[in-house]
Amino acid sequence: NITNLCPFDEVFNATRFASVYAWNRKRISNCVADYSVLYNLAPFFTFKCYGVSPTKLNDLCFTNVYADSFVIRGDEVRQIAPGQTGNIADYNYKLPDDFTGCVIAWNSNKLDSKVSGNYNYLYRLFRKSNLKPFERDISTEIYQAGNKPCNGVAGFNCYFPLRSYSFRPTYGVGHQPYRVVVLSFELLHAPATVCGPKKST
């Protein structure tokens, strides 16, 4: 009989979030998941669920729940959905087409922007091929755009693959930082360890 609440607040209220290319994953298990708490945590810009209804979450049980978190800019949030393409979905964080879970995003301009520009958040701009779903690539190998090998040196047709967002508070919403948490629900042929409040007794 599990009584402890799932530590969603640790994920959502973390002081620092990860850069999207090096997104963070927390496995959540053996706890009571009260998803209604999430609705009250922040004024969400996005709370979209796929393959599951957000209002039914509190009635369900899962084997595992994974919470992935990272920062992107406002106009990239739409890429965090099944079947999307674009720089983020292709080279940084890719959801599977049959994704079961929820994408939660909110504006973090007050936390993640600086007047002089916050350069701490990076994204991958160049990659030889698209990522597979939930693949994480943290390599910093020089990207070869031409025929000549780069031998690890940046220059003509040889690019450092990561680029930094420079978040400034005066930017338009599309270029402001957004914190994203992706909850993916895993149903294996194994005992369910993460249940809503109704199912945990």
Rank of each mutant, 00 (worst) to 15 (best):
Asn1Phe: 03
Ile2Asn: 13
Ile2Phe: 13
Thr3Gly: 08
Thr3Lys: 10
Asn4Ala: 12
Asn4Gly: 11
Leu5Tyr: 11
Leu5Cys: 08
Leu5Asn: 11
Cys6Ala: 03
Cys6Asn: 03
Cys6Tyr: 02
Pro7Glu: 12
Pro7Tyr: 07
Asp9Phe: 09
Asp9Thr: 09
Asp9Cys: 04
Asp9Tyr: 10
Val11Ala: 04
Phe12Cys: 03
Phe12Asn: 01
Ala14Cys: 06
Ala14Gly: 06
Ala14Val: 06
Thr15Glu: 13
Thr15His: 09
Arg16Ser: 14
Phe17Lys: 02
Phe17His: 03
Ala18Glu: 08
Ala18Arg: 05
Ser19Met: 02
Tyr21Ser: 04
Tyr21Arg: 03
Ala22Glu: 12
Ala22Arg: 09
Trp23His: 04
Trp23Asn: 04
Trp23Val: 03
Arg25Glu: 02
Lys26Val: 13
Lys26Pro: 00
Arg27Met: 09
Ile28Met: 15
Ile28Lys: 01
Ile28Cys: 06
Ile28Gly: 05
Ile28Asn: 01
Ser29Gly: 09
Ser29Met: 08
Ser29Pro: 08
Asn30Arg: 07
Cys31Met: 04
Cys31Ile: 04
Val32Ser: 11
Ala33Pro: 12
Ala33Trp: 15
Ala33Gly: 08
Asp34Ser: 06
Tyr35Leu: 15
Ser36Cys: 05
Leu38Pro: 03
Leu38Asp: 04
Leu41Pro: 08
Leu41Ile: 12
Pro43Phe: 04
Pro43Asp: 12
Pro43Thr: 08
Phe44Cys: 13
Phe45Leu: 14
Phe45Cys: 14
Phe45Asp: 15
Thr46Glu: 13
Phe47Lys: 07
Lys48Gly: 01
Cys49Thr: 00
Cys49Gln: 00
Cys49Asn: 00
Cys49Phe: 00
Val52Glu: 04
Ser53Trp: 06
Thr55Ser: 15
Thr55Pro: 08
Thr55Phe: 10
Lys56Met: 10
Asn58Glu: 15
Asn58Lys: 13
Asn58Met: 09
Asn58Arg: 11
Asp59Tyr: 10
Leu60Tyr: 13
Thr63Glu: 12
Thr63Met: 08
Thr63His: 10
Asn64Leu: 09
Asn64Gly: 09
Val65Pro: 00
Val65Thr: 05
Tyr66Ile: 13
Tyr66Glu: 05
Asp68Cys: 02
Ser69Gly: 01
Phe70Glu: 03
Phe70Asp: 02
Val71Ser: 02
Ile72Asp: 01
Ile72Trp: 01
Ile72Asn: 01
Arg73Val: 01
Gly74Cys: 03
Gly74Ala: 08
Asp75Val: 05
Val77Ile: 10
Val77Cys: 02
Val77Gly: 02
Val77Leu: 13
Val77Glu: 03
Gln79Arg: 02
Gln79Glu: 07
Ile80Glu: 03
Ile80Thr: 03
Ala81Gly: 07
Ala81Pro: 02
Pro82Val: 01
Gly83Val: 04
Gln84Arg: 08
Gln84Gly: 12
Thr85Ala: 09
Thr85Glu: 08
Gly86Ser: 04
Gly86Arg: 01
Asn87Ser: 11
Ile88Val: 09
Asp90Asn: 12
Asp90Pro: 02
Asp90Val: 01
Tyr91Ser: 05
Tyr93Gly: 01
Tyr93Cys: 01
Lys94Phe: 00
Leu95Tyr: 00
Leu95Arg: 00
Pro96Trp: 00
Pro96Thr: 01
Asp98Leu: 05
Phe99Asp: 00
Phe99Asn: 00
Phe99Trp: 12
Gly101Phe: 00
Gly101Leu: 01
Cys102Ile: 02
Cys102Gln: 00
Val103Leu: 01
Ile104Phe: 15
Trp106Met: 06
Trp106Ala: 01
Trp106Ile: 04
Trp106Gln: 00
Ser108Ala: 10
Ser108Arg: 01
Asn109His: 12
Asn109Val: 10
Asn109Arg: 08
Lys110His: 14
Leu111Ile: 14
Leu111Ala: 11
Asp112Met: 01
Ser113Trp: 06
Ser113Tyr: 07
Lys114Val: 11
Val115Thr: 14
Val115Met: 12
Val115Asp: 14
Ser116Arg: 12
Ser116Ala: 13
Ser116Gly: 15
Ser116Asn: 15
Gly117Ile: 05
Asn118Trp: 04
Asn118Pro: 11
Asn120Gln: 14
Asn120Met: 10
Leu122Gly: 15
Leu122Glu: 15
Tyr123Met: 06
Tyr123Phe: 10
Tyr123Pro: 03
Leu125Val: 15
Phe126Met: 13
Phe126Asn: 13
Phe126Trp: 14
Phe126Ser: 11
Arg127Lys: 05
Arg127Gln: 04
Arg127Asn: 05
Arg127Gly: 05
Lys128Gln: 12
Lys128Gly: 11
Ser129Pro: 08
Asn130Ala: 14
Leu131Gln: 02
Leu131Arg: 01
Leu131Cys: 04
Lys132Cys: 05
Lys132Trp: 03
Pro133Thr: 05
Phe134His: 09
Glu135Ile: 02
Glu135Val: 04
Glu135Gln: 10
Arg136Met: 04
Arg136Thr: 04
Asp137Met: 01
Ile138Tyr: 07
Ile138Gln: 09
Ile138Thr: 13
Ile138Cys: 12
Ser139Arg: 07
Thr140His: 11
Glu141Asp: 15
Glu141Ile: 07
Glu141Arg: 08
Ile142Met: 12
Ile142Lys: 06
Tyr143Asp: 08
Tyr143His: 11
Gln144Ile: 04
Gln144Trp: 02
Gly146Pro: 05
Gly146Gln: 06
Asn147Phe: 09
Pro149Ala: 13
Pro149Leu: 09
Pro149Ser: 15
Cys150Arg: 03
Asn151Ser: 11
Asn151Val: 08
Asn151Tyr: 11
Gly152His: 09
Val153Gly: 11
Val153Glu: 14
Ala154Trp: 07
Ala154Met: 12
Phe156Ser: 15
Phe156Trp: 12
Cys158Pro: 03
Tyr159Trp: 12
Tyr159Lys: 12
Tyr159Asp: 10
Tyr159Thr: 13
Phe160Ala: 13
Pro161Ala: 04
Leu162Phe: 07
Leu162Lys: 03
Leu162Tyr: 02
Arg163Trp: 05
Tyr165Ser: 05
Ser166Gln: 14
Phe167Trp: 08
Arg168Pro: 07
Arg168Tyr: 10
Arg168Asn: 15
Pro169Trp: 03
Thr170Tyr: 11
Thr170Phe: 10
Thr170Val: 09
Thr170Lys: 11
Tyr171Thr: 14
Gly172Asn: 15
Gly172Glu: 14
Gly172Ala: 14
Val173Gln: 14
Val173Trp: 11
Gly174His: 12
Gln176Thr: 04
Pro177Cys: 02
Tyr178Arg: 03
Tyr178Gly: 01
Tyr178Ala: 09
Tyr178Ser: 06
Tyr178Glu: 03
Arg179Ser: 02
Arg179Lys: 03
Val180Asp: 00
Val180Cys: 08
Val180Trp: 01
Val180Phe: 01
Val181Gly: 00
Leu183Tyr: 00
Leu183Asn: 00
Leu183Gly: 00
Ser184Glu: 04
Phe185Leu: 07
Glu186Ser: 09
Leu188Tyr: 11
His189Leu: 09
His189Thr: 13
His189Asp: 15
Pro191Ala: 11
Pro191Thr: 12
Ala192Tyr: 14
Thr193Cys: 09
Val194Pro: 11
Val194Gly: 10
Cys195Ile: 07
Cys195Phe: 07
Gly196Ser: 11
Gly196Leu: 10
Pro197Asn: 15
Lys198Asp: 12
Lys198Gly: 15
Lys199Leu: 13
Ser200Cys: 12
Ser200Gln: 14
Ser200Arg: 11
Thr201Met: 14
Thr201Lys: 14
Thr201Glu: 14
